[in-house]
């Protein structure tokens, strides 16, 4: 019999970090205020006391320097886990991530590998306005050479880190800030977690809702809402944003013949655009209705509560899109 326990997403990430630090002495953490302060989202609270300042390294406000240093340390055999407070600040390290981490293995003709993990929060919903709220993971998913994952569940928050650390390539982990306080029951004995496959979080027959990260919960709630009206929605959690798991998506769409993509990024040039294009490329003749997308309105995220709410994909928007695709076509 397996024992279980209630864990928050925040605790799950912390346990994953603690576990990795214990299992492999090459693992170390690096980032702003992760040690003494305990992390800006309190994820790494207590780890400094447990593992010491050599392995829990507080950095100055120097995103480009410490992300680049993580790349360098990975090149010589360490297993750095770099934390960037939010994706908005990762823009200061964009050069290191895109021009170094993503290119060196290829550019060197395969002489180097970069087993680096970069964690960062993403997403809006807390009235933090336009420099703290954006969902830029889609940009990173554009870049060959990077692997991009988005744990949406407590189990994935707990399990993806170790798999990412075992991967020879740089892996970016996006944690939606609204998830940290969510909780779930985890088994005491944890099975390994993959970072390649999408997961069907709710099985259904009438329409496929494809989403990830912060919009998974809203999509599941929307699915319950339409279920009351007799529409059986399947909900897919992408989990891996690059590379995308086309097989799981197409398998579902071929069964339901309808798709709605939900993405907190902006619509233009988004992950939602990519997924929608792949569905038309690979499953066009299985579709009974055009693919719908529910994305963030194309504006920097505003502070005022009612404006922020209106900008972001809401359950009601997902429900409306599902109704449209179900009503449309044959």
């Amino acid at each position: 019999m397996t024992t279980t326990r209630k864990t928050t997403y925040r605790e799950a990430v912390r346990e994953a970090l603690r576990d990795a630090l214990s299992r492999d002495e090459r693992v170390f953490l690096m980032g702003e205020d992760i040690g003494r302060y305990g992390g800006c989202y309190a994820v790494s609270l207590g780890l400094l006391e447990e593992f010491g300042p050599e392995r829990i390294r507080d950095t100055p406000l120097s995103e480009s320097a410490f992300v680049g240093a993580g790349i360098g340390a990975a090149l010589v055999g360490m297993r750095p886990v770099v934390e960037i407070m939010t994706v908005n600040f990762s823009l200061l390290a964009l050069d290191q991530i895109v021009n170094n981490a993503a290119t060196m293995p290829h550019m060197s003709g395969g002489q180097f590998s970069i087993p680096l993990v970069i964690r960062m929060t993403t997403g809006a919903g807390r009235q933090l306005a336009a420099q703290h709220s954006h969902s830029l993971e889609g940009w990173y998913a554009h870049i060959p050479g990077l692997r991009v994952v988005a744990p949406a569940t407590v189990a994935d928050a707990r399990g993806m880190l170790w798999t990412a650390l075992c991967d020879p390539d740089p892996v970016l982990i996006f944690e939606h800030a609204s998830l940290y306080n969510t909780a779930a029951t985890l088994a005491e004995q944890l099975a390994p977690v993959d970072i390649d496959h999408a997961a069907v979080r709710r099985a259904g027959t009438d329409v496929t809702v494809i989403t990830y990260g912060g919009t998974l919960a809203k999509s599941l709630e929307a699915a319950e809402e339409v279920a009351a009206a007799g529409v059986d929605a399947e909900v897919i959690d992408l989990r891996a944003l690059r590379p995308l798991d086309d097989a799981t998506i197409m398998d579902s769409v071929r069964r339901t013949h309808r798709a709605v993509v939900v993405d907190e990024g902006w619509r233009s040039g988004s992950l939602a655009a990519e997924i929608s294009a792949r569905i038309t490329e690979q499953a066009f003749y299985d579709l009974d209705a055009p693919v719908e997308r529910v994305c963030t309105v194309e504006t920097p995220i505003p502070y005022a509560q009612h404006l922020e709410r209106a900008a972001l994909p809401q359950q009601s928007d997902i429900v409306a899109a599902v109704r449209r695709v179900v009503a449309g076509g044959g």
Partner: peptide, 23 residues
Amino acid sequence: GRGGSMHLFDVRRRFYGGNAIVA
């Protein structure tokens, strides 16, 4: 109402705003 506490602006006072990205 779009900026909030961190993003006060006032062109008339040549106040180019609260910037929330350090530096």
